[in-house]
Nucleic acid binder design. Structure first.
Length: 458
RNA sequence: GCGUCGGUGCCCGAGCGGACCAAGGGAACGGCCUGCAAAGCCGUAAAGCCGCGGGUUCAAAUCCCGCCCGGCGCUCCA
C-alpha cells in the first residue's frame, strides 16, 4: 500500500482506506476569477498523478475538488467589470477546465460549487452555534477557536504561538472575542451577493465550504485531504477546526504539495510574479507533457523553479522518451504487448508507494526505455515487453508517449521524405541533404532506421 | 522570532545507516552505427571533503547537537 507524508504528524505513513479498495480524496480546487498559473497546475497535477497511480494499482478513487465561485476576489472582479459574480465564475471556470484538459488532468469525479452548498453550510454553522462553538453578531458568525482541542496541530503551533502572530500582525477585529477566531459567515454588505440565514443574511466564510462539501460528499473520516502547502494555515487548519468543533471526524491524512518558485520566490497572484499556464502551453506544443515530466522529476514536497531552461530540459527528456515509440513502430514491434517486465514494475511501484516517489519512478521508466532501445537495436524478442512496460508505467503517471512520429495528414512531408529516400537510393547525397534541410526548415526531423526513414516534428 | 521543509556533480534532481560512497534526466566528450547526420547503444568525464563544525556508530550524504543559507507558513493565496 502507498505511504504518504502526513502533514498532521510529520510522518510518512500508510494511506489507510476507510473502505477497503477505495480511496476518498478531497483536493482543494480553484477560486475561479482569473487565469490559472503554474502553481495551480502543480497542485492539480500532484493529485492527478496520485489518483492515476492509485487507479493504475486497481484502487477505486473518489476524487472531489471544489470550485469556489463566491469570495472577495470574485466580487471585486465582478464589480470592476460591471457584471455578476456568477458570470465571472462561469467564465473563469471554463478557462480553468480548458487548461486542465490541455494538461491531461482528469476531471475530479465531483466538483461541487460553493454556491450550490449554501444550505449545507448554513446547517453546519447552525450546529456550531447550537453547541456553543460559534457566536453570531452584527458582522457575522465566528468560530471560538480556543474551544477546539488541538487547533494548531496541523501547523504544529500552540494556540499561544498563533495568538502572538495574530495579535502582532493582524489588526484585531473588534467583532471577534479572540483574534484567532475566524468567520464562518460574513454578514450581508451592500452590493454583495447574499443568502438568507437564521442569524442574518450574508455569505459563507472561506473555509466552511470545503467542510460542508467534503463531509457531504465523502462522509465522515474520509481518507485524504490535499492542497498546496500555503493552505496549511489558515485554510486547512480552520476547516479541520470547524469539523472537529461540530464533533465530526475529518480527513484521516493530510497531504500538501510544495510551491512553484520564480526567481527563488513563491509564484503567486498577490506577488504578481506568476506565469499563466496558458502562456507556458502556448510557447511550445510539447509543453503540456514537458511540464508534467518536469513536475514528475521533482518530488511533490520540494519547492521547484519553472523557467524556460527547466522546460527545455524537460522537452529534451521527453524527446528521448518519445523516440523509443517511434523506433518500435518503425521496427514493426507491437506497443501493446500484455506481458510486463517484472523488475521494472516492481521498482516503479516501490518508488511510488514511498511517498509518491515520482522522480525515482520516472527514472525506472527511463531505464526501461534504454533497455527497450537496446532490445530494439538488437532485434531481441524482449523488445515488445519492454516497450509495453515503458509505455504502461509512463501512462500510470499520466505521461503519454508518442508511438507515432507523424500525424499522417501532411502529404507534402511524406512526399519530401520519399524524394529524399529516392535520392539516397540513387546515391545523390547532395540532393538528399538538400531535401533534409528543407524538411528541417519545416520543423521536421527525419531519422533513418534499418526499416526505412521515420520523421517527427521538432 | 516561532513552526515547517530543504541545502547533493556544469544544470535539474533521487538516495535518507552498510557492497571501493551516489539513481535518473539535461548539457559535454569519445567509440560503434550512418554516405553524412539524427536517433540509439557503449563508455568517459583528474578532481562532488553530499552547506559548515562537532558527535553517535564497526559503518553516515543518510542518526544527534550547534551554526550558516534558502523556500513556505504565521495575511488573501495552489
Amino acid at each position: 500500500m502507498i505511504h504518504l507524508f502526513d502533514t498532521l504528524n510529520g510522518e510518512i505513513r500508510p494511506l489507510n482506506q476507510r473502505d477497503e479498495g477505495c480511496v476518498s480524496l478531497y483536493a482543494c480546487g480553484p477560486t475561479v476569477y482569473d487565469h490559472p498559473h503554474l502553481g495551480h497546475a502543480r497542485q492539480a497535477m500532484t493529485y492527478d498523478v496520485l489518483r492515476r497511480y492509485l487507479e493504475w494499482r486497481g484502487v477505486t478513487v473518489h476524487h472531489v475538488a471544489n470550485i469556489t465561485d463566491i469570495d472577495d476576489k470574485i466580487i471585486a472582479r465582478a464589480q470592476r467589470e460591471g457584471t455578476t459574480e456568477e458570470a465571472i465564475a462561469t467564465e473563469w471556470k471554463t478557462v480553468y477546465d480548458q487548461i486542465m484538459d490541455r494538461l491531461s488532468i482528469l476531471r475530479p469525479h465531483d466538483r461541487p460549487h460553493a454556491t450550490g452548498y449554501i444550505d449545507e453550510m448554513v446547517a453546519f454553522i447552525q450546529t456550531l452555534l447550537d453547541n456553543g462553538s460559534a457566536y453570531a453578531n452584527d458582522s457575522g458568525v465566528y468560530l471560538r477557536v480556543h474551544r477546539v482541542e488541538g487547533y494548531g496541530d496541523l501547523v504544529h503551533r500552540s494556540l499561544d504561538d498563533l495568538r502572538d502572530g495574530a495579535g502582532a500582525r493582524v489588526e484585531v477585529d473588534p467583532n471577534k472575542e479572540d483574534p484567532l477566531d475566524f468567520a464562518l459567515w460574513k454578514a450581508a454588505k451592500p452590493d454583495e451577493p447574499t443568502w438568507p440565514a437564521p442569524w442574518g443574511a450574508g455569505r459563507p466564510g472561506w473555509h466552511i465550504e470545503c467542510v460542508a462539501m467534503s463531509l457531504g460528499i465523502l462522509g465522515d473520516g474520509f481518507d485524504l485531504h490535499g492542497g498546496g502547502s500555503d493552505l496549511v494555515f489558515p485554510h486547512h487548519t480552520n476547516e479541520r477546526a470547524e469539523a472537529l468543533a461540530a464533533g465530526r471526524s475529518f480527513a484521516q491524512h493530510w497531504v500538501h504539495n510544495a510551491m512553484v518558485n520564480i526567481g527563488g520566490e513563491k509564484m503567486s497572484k498577490s506577488l504578481g510574479n506568476y506565469t499563466t499556464v496558458e502562456a507556458l502551453l502556448d510557447e511550445h506544443r510539447d509543453n503540456a507533457r514537458a511540464l508534467r515530466l518536469a513536475l514528475l522529476q521533482t518530488h511533490y514536497r520540494k519547492t521547484m523553479e519553472i523557467n524556460p531552461e527547466v522546460m527545455a530540459q524537460a522537452r529534451a527528456g521527453l524527446e528521448r522518451l518519445d523516440a523509443m515509440g517511434r523506433k518500435a513502430v518503425a521496427a514493426g514491434v507491437p506497443t501493446d504487448a500484455s506481458e510486463r517486465d517484472a523488475p521494472a514494475v516492481t521498482a516503479f511501484v516501490g518508488a511510488m508507494d514511498n511517498d509518491l516517489g515520482t522522480p525515482e519512478a520516472i527514472a525506472t521508466v527511463f531505464e526501461t526505455i534504454r533497455r527497450a532501445n537496446g532490445a530494439l537495436d538488437a532485434g531481441s524478442e524482449e523488445a515488445a515487453v519492454l516497450v509495453a512496460t515503458a509505455l504502461d508505467l509512463a501512462g500510470a503517471l499520466g505521461l503519454f508517449l508518442e508511438t507515432t512520429g507523424r500525424d499522417g495528414t501532411d502529404r507534402t512531408i511524406d512526399d519530401l521524405v520519399a524524394a529524399r529516400t529516392q535520392a539516397r537510393t540513387d546515391r545523390d547525397f547532395a540532393e538528399a541533404d538538400r531535401i533534409r534541410d528543407q524538411l528541417t526548415e519545416l520543423g521536421v526531423v527525419v531519422e533513418d532506421t534499418p526499416n526505412g526513414p521515420i520523421w517527427h516534428r521538432s
